[in-house]
Design a protein around this nucleic acid. Structure first.
Length: 574
RNA sequence: CGGAGCGUGGCGCAGCUUGGUAGCGCGCCUGCUUUGGGAGCAGGAUGCCGGAGGUUCGAAUCCUCUCGCUCCGACCA
């Protein structure tokens, strides 16, 4: 490919609405253009990268025994009513009516369609297991699209669905996908981690997320420094095995704390450490009041409350609810005498004594609160967010909290959809049974964005070779020289003959422009051909990642290029 | 959804406070020179100043409405 006939509209400046580095660089490198909030056109250069990722995904899905199909983007509302998600899914589901006033939606995911498809086809256990996938445009009307391709409304996703006879089969399908995902992200030369995750709104019991590690990630991972335990902090277990401190229980004492609301204010006013205070969070769990107690220096993980109570919604109480339930304004709720039926306390609170807590009365706190004596605790449970000072729940080693970008998610769906939509088959005994399902997603366009978040420098994108739109960028300086042009064509043909995608920058531009653009667009292997180096019989080579330069002799180019390429790829762990 | 901000040639911005008929840098086109890390000179093209309404002799500028975009928040006991 010759740049003079290709379209890569590079920009010196990023548009002012681009905030994150992948969005800026993808725009500047001529990969994408925004059409409207969260919706992008993929330009030729960007699409090549997307297609490279998609191809690797495809190969590994096929290898794992999944079959590619393609389902519709426009889906009938009736199907979603059948699964119950027409009501559940909320505004992210873009709904509209067709000319016959029939309710429709744009597919944010395809459980309903695939379940509907296979329930009409699969009759016998002999036809199972099945795993089908597609690589297709999804639309999710996000509350707030942002970060370019990282959280768009329209994006390209690979979604796979497995159907099995029983739990053991479903487990095998899940493991196969988990392994396929590890292969995929390894092949893409990304630094990633598979983490335990909450299963979220799609449903199912547990799941794993695949996180591309990057400082700019929206998710925080709790990762063990010793074993391979890793979990989304939303899910990460916190072990507490401390014994009661055995201190003498002092009498409960109310003190005036006028206008003292927050933990920091209480700590300062009463001159106690935040870790000696009980934070009482009032929550509305499926509309009912629940109190959750954690140590003052800790943060509640609402998801743990949700899972503990097997609830569907957990929200922080409004100031009005706080007043009604605790009998005091916000800032003075406490466990003793609290008129809320369900009071959960974090494990850490079981061990301590003589706590400071709100008194459920305006401008008043209690000293020497001892939970067994002064409060009615429904249950002690792991309720809080993990911190860097906690230890691995598996092996006890130190925990670190790197950030990541979720690029893949594997779920066990169980019978959720097969029951709701009556997807059944006949087993060996002629008995009707529900298919056991799993679903597995990879955000293809997000993989490209996440890849750039992870791999860039001050000059631009630093593509890992498997994700790069082209394998080699050959800068042809001195484009007016017949000799240089002929040599460029020769090298292009030679490398293309090795199966490489080669881009030759033959534009009528000054060398500086070409160098800058080369670094910006991030092709991993850069070759420079100009009168100067030609005179010495060499081609200059630069590893975009390390910046290291080499010289390849023209006489022995094929061999020297192959060797150089190998060392560059080795730097990527390939 | 709540809060804040921004819409002016392709991109980045100034002009708006104090109304007088639009400007800068980059990019683009032509020519000459230049050619190893975003060249120089000369010439040139490109704006319904987001849209609608209003005030005014006159609106990019003031007022009202509207559309679009961006950011922040949704951990507070």
């Amino acid at each position: 490919m010759y740049w003079s006939r290709y379209y890569i509209p590079t920009l010196k400046e990023a548009p002012s609405d681009a905030e994150v580095v992948s969005h800026k660089l993808m725009t500047r490198a001529g990969m994408i253009r925004k059409l409207t909030a969260g919706v992008y056109s993929y330009l030729p250069f960007g699409l090549r990268s997307i297609n490279k990722v998609a191809q690797i995904v495809r190969e590994e899905m096929d290898r794992a025994g999944a079959m590619e199909l393609m389902m519709p983007t426009v889906q009938p509302g009736d199907l979603w009513k059948e699964s119950g998600r027409w009501e559940q899914y909320g505004k992210e589901l873009l709904r509209f009516k067709d000319r016959h006033e029939r309710e429709c939606c744009l597919g944010p995911t395809h459980e309903e369609v695939i379940t509907d498809l296979l329930r009409g086809e699969v009759r016998s256990y002999k036809q199972l297991p099945l795993n089908m996938y597609q690589i297709q445009t999804k639309f999710r009307d996000e509350i707030r699209p942002r970060f370019g391709l990282m959280r768009g409304r329209e994006f390209l996703m690979k979604d796979a669905y497995s159907f099995d006879r029983d739990d053991a089969g479903a487990e095998a399908s899940y493991r196969a996908m988990y392994e396929a995902y590890k292969r995929i992200f390894s092949r893409l030369a990304l630094r990633f981690r598979a983490v335990e995750a909450d299963s979220g709104s799609i449903g199912g019991s547990f799941s794993h997320e695949f996180m591309v590690l990057a400082q700019t990630g929206e998710d925080v991972i709790a990762a063990c420094t010793a074993c391979d335990y890793a979990a989304n902090v939303e899910r990460a277990e916190v072990r507490f095995e401390g014994a009661p401190d055995g201190a003498e229980q002092l009498p409960l004492q109310a003190v005036d704390t006028p206008g003292v609301h927050s933990i920091e204010e209480v700590a300062a006013f009463l001159n106690v450490e935040p870790c000696r205070i009980i934070k009482t969070l009032l929550l509305s769990v499926d509309g009912k009041p629940v109190a959750a107690l954690v140590r003052g220096d800790r943060e509640l993980n609402p998801l743990k409350v949700k899972n503990r109570l097997d609830a569907t919604t957990v929200e922080f109480a409004t100031p009005e609810q706080v007043a009604a339930w605790s009998g005091a304004p916000v800032g003075f709720a406490g466990p003793s005498g609290l008129g809320v039926e369900t009071i959960l306390a974090d494990l850490e609170l079981q061990a301590g004594s003589n706590w400071v807590a709100g008194a459920n009365r305006a401008d008043t706190h209690n000293l020497n609160v001892n939970l067994p004596r002064d409060a009615r605790i429904t249950a002690y449970a792991d309720l809080r967010l993990i911190t860097e000072s906690d230890y691995c729940p598996r092996c006890g080693a130190a925990i670190e909290l790197p950030r990541g970008i979720e690029v893949g998610h594997v779920f066990k769906l169980g019978l959720k959809y097969s029951k709701a939509m009556n997807a059944v088959f006949l087993d060996e005994n002629g008995k009707e049974r529900h298919m056991v399902m799993g679903c597995y997603g990879i955000g293809v366009t997000r993989v490209v964005a996440a890849c750039i978040e992870q791999n860039h420098d001050a000059d631009g994108i630093v593509f890992p070779p498997p994700v790069s739109p082209f394998d080699v960028l050959l800068l042809s300086l001195d484009g007016k020289s017949e000799e240089v042009n002929a040599k460029a064509a020769e090298l292009h043909g030679l490398m293309a003959g090795q199966g490489l995608d080669v881009l030759v920058d033959d534009r009528d531009e000054r060398p500086g422009v070409k160098f800058k653009d080369a670094d910006l667009i991030g092709v991993p292997l850069q070759l420079v051909l100009g009168s100067k180096s030609m005179g010495r019989g060499v081609v200059e080579a630069k590893d975009r990642r390390s910046g290291e330069k080499a010289e390849l002799s023209m006489e022995n180019f094929a061999a020297e290029f192959a060797a150089w390429k190998k060392t560059v790829y080795a730097g990527w762990g390939m």
